[in-house]
Amino acid sequence: MHPIVFEAAEAEGLHVFRYLPGDSMAVSRHWPGLFQSWPEGKTPFTEWAVNNNNMEEVAVYVGLVWRLTAGLARYAIPTYYRDDAERTLGRAPALVDWEYEVDAEQLTAALRDKGFVPGCSATTTRPRPTPWEVEDADRAGLFPLATPRDLVAALHAVLCDASSEITVFAVAPGSGRFDRLTTALRGPTRPTLTEVLGGDGVFVDLTIGSDLGNYDSVIVASPAGLLPRLADLTADYARRIEAYEQRLDELRDVPDFLRAMRKLAGVDLDAP
C-alpha cells in the first residue's frame, strides 16, 4: 500500500490539491482473478471500470471523487469520447466550448496541468479548433452524474487510450447554478477555474494512465478550504486499502471481489 498524499498549493485564489502517484499506486496487492476469465454478467469492469491494467485503484478514485463532492450537483466532461459517453450514460450532454486538459505523460504538476483548452470530440477530423470556429460536432459534452454508477459509465467511455480523463464540476444544486456553469464553459474567451467554480464549486480532474509512460492523477480545486475533508478521506482510504489487502486471499470469485470493491470504494454504486 502507498498512502494517498495530496500536494497543496494556491492558484487563481483557489485552494488546489494534486495527487500524483507516479508508479506508486495506492493499492499495491491485486486480486489474481483480475488476470483470469470472468463469467458473464457483472464483472470488475462493468461494475467498477476495473481490469487487469487499471486495477483496484480505479474503485478508490470513484469513491474519492464521489465522497469529496457530496452534497453538490455533479457534472462531468469525459474528455474526447463525448458520443461514447452519451451512449454509456444514456443521455445527451450540454455542449460546451472548453474542457480541462492534463498531460498524462508528465510527472510534475507544472508540466502536467494544462488548464482549459478548446473542447473537441472524437468526431473532430481536423486540428483542435478555436472556440469561435466550433461546430456542435467539435464541442465537448457536459453530463450530469446522478450516482457513482454514472461516473463508472463515463469511465467506460474513455478508458480506451494511452490515458483517459474525466473532469467533474460539482456545484450547488439547481438549474440556475447549472446555467452559470455552462455559461462559464462557453464562448470565445478561455475561462478560469475561479469563473467556472464561483464561490461554491469543487473541481476534480481524474486522469488515468494506461500505457507505459502515462500516469494517474487526481487534481482538486475549490474556493473553500478542503484540507480537513481531504485529510479525513485519505486517512479513511488508507484504512480501507489496508483492510482490502489483508483480506485479498479470501476472495474466491467475482461476487466476492465486487463486494470487496464496494467496501474499498466506500460508496454504493446506485446511491446518490
Rank of each mutant, 00 (worst) to 15 (best):
V27Y: 01
D253I: 11
P129E: 09
R252L: 15
D236T: 15
V171S: 03
D253T: 06
H30I: 05
G141W: 02
R74Y: 00
R190E: 11
V168G: 08
W31P: 15
G201I: 12
W98L: 06
V218F: 05
A85F: 10
V65S: 13
A154G: 15
R112V: 11
V152L: 01
A231Y: 03
Y244P: 05
A85I: 03
P144S: 05
L14Y: 03
N53Y: 05
L107V: 15
G225R: 15
L258G: 03
E10D: 11
W132G: 01
D236H: 09
S210N: 13
F178E: 11
V117M: 12
W31Y: 05
R91V: 00
T79F: 00
P39N: 05
G115N: 04
F257P: 15
E56D: 09
G199D: 14
W98I: 10
T69Q: 03
D249W: 07
R126P: 02
D97G: 06
A260K: 14
S210T: 13
D270E: 14
P44Y: 03
D83Q: 10
E7G: 09
E57W: 12
H2Y: 08
D200S: 06
T147R: 15
C120F: 11
D249S: 13
D236L: 10
L111W: 04
T124I: 12
P148C: 11
V168R: 06
L193Q: 05
G266I: 13
P129F: 00
V196Y: 10
D268N: 12
E10T: 10
D256W: 08
M1L: 07
A184P: 02
Y19F: 10
A109C: 01
M25T: 11
F257A: 06
L159G: 02
A172Q: 14
N51Y: 08
E135T: 13
G213L: 14
I4R: 04
R18P: 01
V96R: 01
V158Y: 01
A104F: 03
A260N: 14
R18T: 14
R252V: 01
A140E: 11
L193Y: 02
A238Y: 08
